[in-house]
Simulated scan of single mutants.
Amino acid sequence: MRILFLGDIVGRAGREAVMVSLPGLRRTLRLDLVVVNGENASHGFGLSPAIAQDLFAAGADIVTLGNHAWDRKDLIGHIDAEPRIIRPANYPPGTPGQGSALVTLVDGRKALVINVMGRQFMDALDDPFRAVADILARHRLGVTVQAVVVDIHAEASSEKWAMGHVLDGRASLVVGTHTHTPTADHRILPGGTAFQTDAGMCGDYDSVIGMGKDAAIARFLRRMPGERLQPAEGQASLAGIMVETDDATGLARRVAPLRMGGLLAPTTPDF
């Protein structure tokens, strides 16, 4: 299975870059599954149902969320009716939505996508490790599902690394989101799971993690709340990771980063 994961989409610049580029990427990279993190897609804070539909129309199969999941109140009443949008699985019981999604491809192969949120320097949610374990107890990589993708939306690199090692051999890809900065550590772990600490963001990198520079810098200089942060609207870069898996085992065969457009040095998977 050929899987593309795109990091946090930030604002109009990020989502327009994804919507313009994704149809072509699906064709040229021969993608079977596309997962995107959309928690900053709506003006930098949250995801609206309308923008989610635009992302699906462009070729996304699943949209994951994170700590801004509920910034758009209109999503709360929509998420239960849209299984392709998933929020972190370690939100407390009774929270709207689901923390995982099972995707059936046109050829019958199945992929499980899981979203969890870290707890270090983040909201005090339930244990993400236990949440993933509970979901995986109902599925078996290479038997009931041909791929498992885990988006760990977390601040601490250590927590993301720990999740990768815990799931090594039990997931096809474990990838971090939230810091909006692509890391250079993409690799296949000893047990066969592809891993990257953070996929980066799809947005304008002439910014402060996707937000306009002046307002963001002023907060650091003055240590006072100022004007509301707004997404930067320059040319956006896409940042993500692509994995090719073995359908028999569900484990990764090859992994490579994807970066295109904007300020980042471009790189495209060559498999």
Rank of each mutant, 00 (worst) to 15 (best):
M1Q: 04
M1F: 03
M1S: 07
F5A: 12
G7C: 05
I9C: 06
V10L: 00
G11I: 07
G11W: 01
P23T: 09
V35N: 10
V35E: 01
N37P: 05
N37A: 02
N40R: 08
A41Y: 11
S42N: 12
H43F: 12
G44V: 01
F45Q: 10
A52H: 15
D54Q: 15
A57Y: 03
A58I: 14
V63P: 01
G66L: 00
A69W: 15
W70V: 04
D71N: 10
I76F: 04
I79A: 10
R84P: 09
N90V: 06
Y91N: 11
P93Y: 02
Q98P: 02
S100H: 14
T104H: 10
T104M: 13
L105D: 09
L105R: 07
V106Q: 12
D107Y: 07
R109N: 13
K110Q: 15
L112D: 10
V116D: 06
M117L: 08
G118S: 06
F121R: 15
F121A: 15
D127N: 15
A131V: 02
A133F: 05
A133S: 15
I135E: 11
R138E: 09
H139M: 05
T144M: 07
T144L: 03
V149D: 00
V150R: 08
A154I: 07
A154C: 00
A154K: 00
A156L: 05
S157N: 02
S158H: 06
S158E: 06
W161F: 14
M163N: 12
H165E: 14
L167I: 06
S172H: 07
V175T: 13
P182D: 05
T183M: 06
T183R: 04
H186A: 13
R187V: 05
R187H: 13
L189R: 06
G192I: 12
T193V: 05
A194R: 07
Q196F: 00
T197M: 03
T197C: 03
M201F: 00
M201W: 00
S207P: 00
K213L: 02
K213Y: 11
K213V: 00
A216C: 10
A216I: 11
I217A: 04
R219G: 08
F220L: 12
L221T: 11
L221P: 02
L221N: 04
L221C: 06
P225Y: 04
P225T: 03
G226H: 12
E227K: 15
R228S: 13
L229E: 01
G234D: 02
A239W: 05
I241D: 01
V243K: 02
V243Y: 09
T249W: 05
T249V: 05
R253F: 07
R253S: 14
P257H: 01
M260H: 14
G261W: 02
G262I: 07
G262V: 07
L263T: 07
L264G: 12
A265G: 10
T267I: 15
P269C: 03
D270E: 15
